[in-house]
Simulated assay, not measured.
Amino acid sequence: MQWGQIKVLFILSFLVLDIFLLNQFMEKQQASELGPIATANSEDFEDELENNNITVSWDNIPSEVPSVPQTISSGSEFSEGILSQIEELREGDEQTVAVQNNSVLKGKLNEPIEVTEDNVVEQVNRVVPFSNQYEYWNWNKEEGVILFFQKKNDRTIFYNSGGFLMLQVADGKITSYIATLISFSDGEEQASSSGTKDPQLIQPSKVIQRLMDEEHLVSGDEVTNMTVGYYNSINLVPGEENGPQVFAPTWKVTVNGEKILFVYAITGAIIDEEESAFIEKINSSFNLSVNNTPAPLVDNEKSNEETEGTEETEETNNGVSNE
């Protein structure tokens, strides 16, 4: 390896370390602002739940807070193994596929596949060969899409445009889909791999207390489930959403069996995220319609050839016109 390449690697490594340390400092600062949460005792908490008419299904909530490290990605791009699986799809006759920038896969089924609530995962496995990289999230029948989110360390990465699988459904049949995958490189995988301890996560009771204080939980609500996943906490390259990211452990709080709330498990900050807004963002960013009329799937190389041909035609026409 040339010295110039080694120097660049060292610079990037130190940049990532500096940003991580800054992020840790900011998180500790934010955590210090959670005074009421940190000092609440169990008896006062139970009294407040009763006073606010809020119940908690403790059987569906971890009795011990898991140890979940922060995680750093190296970008959003398909590996060689995934690309070879995509190439096999291209050679078949069941669907038309196109890959953009080695990071976005668009597929259109030549014969739509019927899907039900009971067999959604099984049917998606038939359509996307690497679907085991994702966790089933929801079938949004109003929008006509099925959502899967990428997994990391068997934990869901919530609402990230770099790691999702979204399938269009029309008349109960899968018609097309779009997929991206976040990549994790050796040495960059764990943000706490430098020998520091994994960050201590906020207890479920304190998360619930936080949600009550901010009036995200109201009288009559029941906290039915809580799990820990990941949510983006910082983009290492400003303005580059699909570049390297730091993912922080995040509590997913299910209320009344359907409403989902997210809370950073280190700082206690509440995350504002709506499924409909995410679907709209994906549709806008990746040019995929959610109105049962999929956008045309165009391969990069073919698109470039067509563009060049169009430019040559325009130049010819201009020349004739000028004459």
Rank of each mutant, 00 (worst) to 15 (best):
M1W: 04
Q2K: 11
I6E: 12
D18Y: 03
F20G: 11
F20I: 13
E27M: 15
K28Q: 15
Q30E: 14
T39A: 05
D44Y: 12
F45I: 06
T55I: 05
I86G: 00
A98Y: 00
K108M: 08
L109T: 02
V121K: 07
Q123K: 15
V124Y: 00
V124H: 01
N125W: 07
S131K: 12
Q133S: 15
Y136W: 08
W137K: 09
K141T: 15
F149L: 03
F158K: 01
M166K: 10
V169L: 06
V169F: 11
A179W: 01
T180C: 08
E189I: 08
S193R: 11
K197F: 05
D198I: 10
P204K: 06
P204H: 08
R210A: 03
E222F: 00
T224Q: 09
V228W: 02
G229D: 08
L236Q: 03
E241I: 12
Q245E: 11
A248Y: 01
V255Y: 02
V255W: 02
N256K: 06
L261T: 05
I266T: 09
T267P: 00
E273D: 15
S276I: 10
N287R: 13
S289H: 04
P294M: 06
V298F: 12
E306N: 12
E308N: 12
V320M: 09
